[in-house]
Amino acid sequence: MPVIASNRINNPVDAEQILLNGDADLISMARPFLADPAILTKAYENRVEDINTCIACNQACLDHVFELKPASCLVNPEAGRELELELIPATVKKRVLVIGAGPGGIEAARVLALRGHQVVLADQNDAIGGQLNFSRIVPGKSEFNETIRYYKTQLSKLNVQVRLKHRITADDPLVAQADEIIIATGIEPRKPDILGVNNEYVVSYKDIFEDRVPVKENIVIIGGGGVACDLAILLKQKGAKEITMLQRSKAFARGIGKTTRWATLMELNMKNIRMIGGISEYKAIDQGEITFLREGALRSIPADLIVYASGQLPNNSLYNKLTESKKPVHIIGGAKDASELDAKKAIYEGTIVAREI
């Protein structure tokens, strides 16, 4: 009986090993071809490092299908758009400065370089990827490392000048040297307007993901969206004993697609993470507890650490300054609109703007 192995085989090296072991006669892949239609060609040519690996996020493929939208791919926005997203060499080669090396910025830099532009990519952090670096450390999401690996390889091969630990200001020489500029500076966590939010034991989700704050045993998370859910799962792995998520909405994990939301909620329940929704008002944070109003009753929950993950604001101050110059300045991703923060949108906007320049 011929046996076909399928599901989450996204690496040709793994596929070949399964065949060599005699565990299966054929390998079936679907989503990996959306992420990189040349996956087998690259494997045959021993260019595995050039493969844009499927990370099983489902955000633009299965989630789209279940919403009756055309299937595409988060890491490869050309999927399903092959006729409209042609890669045409630039008629006028320009010096383009991309500020911000998050998902939108690195995709813009890659496509610009492919089209023949001279590209400088600058970021104040010490690594490319932006908030992809948050996702990759969440238990179960380590495959986001593959996306960062892919872009790092492509930017190097395309001779993109990557300037890390470089905070761009309006008077930076790189600004003066550029013909056009792309702002991809992302977001900043929104600090909720709660009395006592400036206490030293109240921090943002970035502080946790960037390992700037020691994890405590009893933690309250303000927020219940995708970032807050990832945060709760990460904190549990880091040793937090009791985690409570608070939010105004009664529906947790909103914004996560249909194909993975149920699994996220199940994991939160399995890890005994408390989810309290329907809060009408946050009253105060004081003396190691947070007080709030829910269903007409005043409640308090003690906490050693309170983390807010309840929304973002666009980090667009540099864009506002640079628009005063005569240079063409473009803005993409969270810096443009932080209300719907996701890598799918940022990468798509990055690939679009890079084709327009």
Rank of each mutant, 00 (worst) to 15 (best):
L112P: 05
I187V: 10
V3N: 01
I332K: 05
A43F: 11
I285W: 12
I55N: 02
I181H: 07
P77S: 07
M245N: 04
L231H: 11
I332T: 03
R149G: 01
Q161W: 00
S142Q: 03
I99K: 08
N316D: 15
R136Q: 04
N52L: 08
T264R: 07
K165L: 08
D304S: 14
T259Q: 11
G333Q: 05
N7K: 11
I187S: 09
E49Y: 09
R355L: 08
N125W: 01
G104M: 08
I301G: 13
H166M: 01
T185F: 14
Y308D: 06
A56G: 00
A79I: 04
L322H: 06
I219E: 06
R274N: 12
V119Y: 09
V96W: 06
S6I: 07
V120N: 08
L83T: 12
R355Q: 10
A263T: 12
E49T: 05
E143R: 13
R47C: 01
G311C: 04
A15P: 12
D342F: 11
I243C: 09
K327S: 08
L114V: 07
R355F: 10
N7Q: 11
A338V: 03
R163T: 00
D23T: 12
G311D: 04
Q17F: 01
V3F: 13
A56K: 02
E281W: 14
S142W: 00
E281D: 13
G334S: 04
N159Y: 03
E82K: 03
N133S: 03
M29C: 00
